[in-house]
């Protein structure tokens, strides 16, 4: 029962973050919102008895992907500046 309430709260946060990731004007905020979705998903995997998937998602989905996005965004911003 307690677990269900925790998961409902996290699901609502994930849905809000998903709308923010798609409709926010600022690309950096959108990328961070998609990273937060992965982070909360990894907490839900712990409740679903999948520790392997949870730690892999936490390190790859919410850290490495965001870093790769930021490398590309930084490159695009640099090209904007010199134009």
């Amino acid at each position: 029962m307690m677990y269900s309430l925790i998961i409902i709260v996290m699901s609502l946060i994930m849905l809000v973050m998903a709308f923010m990731a798609i409709h926010h004007k600022n690309l950096q905020v959108a990328v961070i919102a998609s990273g937060i979705i992965s982070l909360f998903a990894s907490v839900i995997y712990i409740f679903l008895a999948a520790p392997d998937v949870a730690i892999t998602e936490a390190s790859i989905g919410s850290a490495l992907t965001v870093v790769i996005f930021f490398y590309v965004l930084n490159k695009i911003r640099q090209s904007d500046d010199t134009k």
């Binding site: 990731a21 798609i22 998609s34 998903a41 989905g61």
Partner: peptide, 8 residues
Amino acid sequence: ISFSVLDT
């Protein structure tokens, strides 16, 4: 970004 949400 939407693709990555779909993936998750």
